[in-house]
């Protein structure tokens, strides 16, 4: 690491660089956060796949709303001393199913979410203010942290993601059909209500995990950005979800690996990788369009 140190000094930078990147003790840290990496990897994959439908159903705002309520649930659990996983899950499912019941009309939905979201955020902040435990776990729910996920908790997080993915796979074609055109799908016997509610269930599950890994404010980085990137480079029904999963995986795991070297929350690393991927995909798409023209 001496080369890096020399570089820092040469550049005249004082302390802050060490906060961003510092790879001393890397191996030890790795062992500590193995569980977080596994959780993040699974989340990245499932988030990337789910994101394709979030984009198609125009639900980015809903994701944001659900994550604020999930945050409130997690903060409430922290305050009560109960399981954060369960708290995040409860808040998230409640919000997701409520939004699902509001129905498909985007405008009604968005105004309701706009009302719900600050309420959830306010509630969560209230709970955190009342809580007098470790400050880092407070901040972590908003902006993400490498929580040292313990064994049972890891299986919860992974299990929740796997259930969400199983739901998506089970309703894959009807969901695709319903997202494209609900009435045409209904004409062919796709039950729109059931499909939407199952999708919201999957969304709630994934968001509750994402809140605990990247924090409520940055859930979109794993649930929208990877899929949006994939859509820039492909229009294939098969390739887009696969690429979304890949980009999500790279951002989530890459973010944690980089964050290990510094003392910042993990979200800036994850969001930066995700954003860079998006820019790269835009560039690739633009070049290809120009060549095709």
């Amino acid at each position: 690491m001496s080369g890096l140190d020399a570089l820092t000094i040469l550049a005249g930078h004082a302390q802050w660089w060490h906060q961003v990147i510092d790879f001393s003790d890397y191996g030890q840290l790795m062992a500590l956060v193995r569980n977080s990496i596994i959780a993040a990897a699974v989340l990245g994959v499932v988030g990337g796949v789910l994101g394709v439908f979030v984009m198609q159903r125009d639900m980015a705002f809903a994701v944001h709303g659900v994550s604020e309520l999930s945050f409130a649930g997690a903060a409430g659990a922290l305050l009560l001393g109960s399981s954060v996983v369960v708290g995040a899950l409860a808040g998230s499912l409640l919000a997701a199913l409520a939004i699902g019941l509001l129905g498909a009309r985007a405008r009604d939905r968005n105004s309701a979410i706009g009302v719900l979201m600050p309420f959830g955020l306010g509630l969560g902040i209230l709970f955190l203010a009342l809580y007098d435990g470790r400050a880092s776990s407070k901040f972590g729910l908003l902006t993400g942290q490498i929580i040292s996920v313990d064994g049972p908790q890891l299986w919860w997080l992974v299990g929740i993601c796997v259930v969400a993915l199983a739901i998506l796979v089970a309703i894959w074609r009807p969901l695709l059909f319903n997202s494209l055109d609900p009435d045409v799908a209904a004409a062919r016997g796709v039950p729109g209500r059931v499909v939407s509610m199952l999708f919201m269930l999957a969304l709630g599950l994934v968001v509750s995990v994402a809140v605990q890994v990247v924090g409520a404010l940055l859930v979109l980085a794993l649930l929208v950005t990877p899929a949006a990137s994939a859509l820039r480079v492909s229009a294939s029904t098969v390739a887009v979800p696969l690429l979304g999963a890949l980009f999500g995986l790279v951002a989530a795991v890459g973010g944690i690996l980089l964050a290990l070297g510094g003392s910042l929350p993990i979200s800036p690393y994850i969001t930066t990788i995700a954003f860079a991927t998006y820019l790269g995909c835009r560039a690739v798409g633009a070049v290809r369009d120009r060549r095709a023209a």
């Binding site: 089970a170 009807p174 494209l180 294939s236």
Partner: peptide, 29 residues
């Protein structure tokens, strides 16, 4: 349906749209 434009950026090709007419109501992939 009455003319409703499908947005650009929909991850689907012409044949995928038609294929949904065959088995879009079936569960799974």
């Amino acid at each position: 349906p009455q003319q409703r434009l499908i947005p650009t950026g929909t991850p689907m090709r012409g044949r995928d749209l038609v294929a949904l007419g065959v088995d879009g109501h079936r569960p799974g992939v």
